[in-house]
Structures are given as structure tokens and as C-alpha cells.
Simulated scan of single mutants.
Amino acid sequence: MTTTDPHALTGAYALHALDGREAAAFERHLAGCDACGQEVAEFRATTARLALASTVRTPPAMRDQVLRRVTTVRQTPPGAAPPQRVRRGVRRGGGPVRWALAASVAAAVAFGATAVWQYERAEDARLRAAQTQRQAEALAEVLAAPDARSRSARMAGGAGTLVVSPGRDRAVFVATGMSLPPRGKVYQLWFADGEEMRSAGLMDPGRGSQTVLMRGPVGGASDVGITVEPAGGSKQPTSEPVALLDMPA
């Protein structure tokens, strides 16, 4: 530190930015200075609230940045003559150093918040990639299963193929050149268990050709239907099926 005025060290002390010798000297001053004690308490309360915004450790260089910032501003100790015009509600003692330190703390919090956001984005991407990988593996297992059977039909301006593996109790639907559903609508797949219809997942409304791993086990389904439903799907079909496929023998 380049300053020897202990009144200007309240913020640095609250942020643990003083080395051992400086901290010991300031604590001796603090024992007899109520004004500095009040400022230290305020700084600690403020930094505690700011710390709630981020749990990311600040970079090692942040201490040096804070100390450099402090030495570049004019520091006014308590008791100095106030400026002629003071805005209502602004504390007069130690103003410049308070704002410099506050700016440094805010920069540290912003850095931490950015790091958290970047980490969360990377974690989301990793989870999506893992999910895509698992779906691709499940699709390959059904399509390559020794007991896989298929049935195809023309539908919605294109063609659809149902592939079922009884051994794995899973089914895959392959769409080729199907017309896109109306805006705000989606194709929904269904297993027909006798009179009961069980949702087997949604197709991508923006693609006419796609391969879909149908949701849930095949069970005792007798056939598969495709209906046009509101975006997000329905609990039960709300329209006549655009296609019906018997389970392949």
C-alpha cells in the first residue's frame, strides 16, 4: 500500500486486501476510531450481500487490481472539509475510496456471475449431448435387433415405417418426406392398447424426414396411430389419425 493514512484502509481491511503487517497496524487504529469501525461494518455487510450473487472464487489478480484502483483516486479521511455541495443521502466520509472499492467488488461479482452462466451453459450442452448419445444408441439397438420387424405405409404426402423389436420391447418410427403439420400443431405418435390410446411421443414439427424412438414399451399394443395435436401434445387424441399401422408380425 502506498498510503499511510489508516482512515483510508477501511474498505481494503473489510475485503481482506491488507497484508499481515498492514492489517495489524490498522487493527490498532481501529480500536480507538469509531468512524472507521462503522465503515468496516458497512463494507462487510455490503460484501456479504454481494457474495450471495455468486459462489465462484475471484481470480488471484483481483486483489492487485483493487489495490491499484485504490491508489489512483483521491482519498478523503473522516473529518476532512466537505465539498460545498453534497447530494442528500450521500455519506461524506471516505467517498472516493468507497466508490472505487465498490466498483472493484461489483466487477468481481460480475466476473463470477459470468463464469457461473458459462458453466451452466456448458453443463446444459453436455447433458443434451449425453441424452442425444443415449437416444442414438437405443435407436441403433432397435433397428439392428435380430428380431426387428417392420411395416411401411404411405401417409401425409410421404411415407412412414414402423420398426418393432419384441425382445427389446421398443419401437422406432421412421418418417420420409411427410408434409409438415400446420403452424402450432405437431404429429403425435400413439400405441393402441385395445381401446386405450397411449402416447408414444412427439415428432419434430419442423422436419418431414426423421427417425423417432417411440416413448415407452410396446407391451401389448395392436397398432400405432399418428394424429395432429396442439403444440406440446395431448393426453388423448383430439383428431382423426392421419395414419394407422398394424404391428408387424
Rank of each mutant, 00 (worst) to 15 (best):
M247F: 01
T161I: 06
V90N: 04
A53G: 04
L101M: 14
A243Q: 08
A14Q: 04
E39Q: 13
R74F: 15
A102C: 11
A41Q: 12
R215N: 10
G158P: 07
G219N: 06
W117A: 06
E196A: 14
P82I: 11
E27M: 01
T3C: 09
L15T: 00
T76S: 11
W117S: 04
S209K: 05
T10P: 04
G20D: 15
Q131E: 14
A140G: 13
T58N: 06
R21D: 15
A231E: 14
R69S: 15
G160E: 01
G225Q: 15
T211F: 02
G194H: 02
V86N: 07
R215H: 12
A80E: 11
L202N: 09
A106N: 09
P96F: 14
S179V: 09
A148N: 03
C33E: 05
A14V: 04
R98N: 06
R134T: 12
L189Y: 09
R98W: 13
M203W: 12
A129S: 09
A110I: 03
E240K: 08
T55R: 11
T76L: 14
V186P: 01
I226P: 08
Q65V: 14
S150K: 08
F173K: 00
P77Q: 09
S179G: 13
H16C: 13
G216W: 02
L143R: 11
V142G: 03
A130C: 02
F173D: 00
P146W: 00
L18H: 05
V97Y: 05
E240Q: 10
G194N: 01
Q133V: 06
G95R: 15
L213S: 08
D5T: 09
E229D: 08
D169Q: 05
M178P: 05
A17S: 01
T227E: 01
A25G: 07
A61M: 07
T72P: 00
A61H: 11
A140K: 15
A100K: 00
L189C: 13
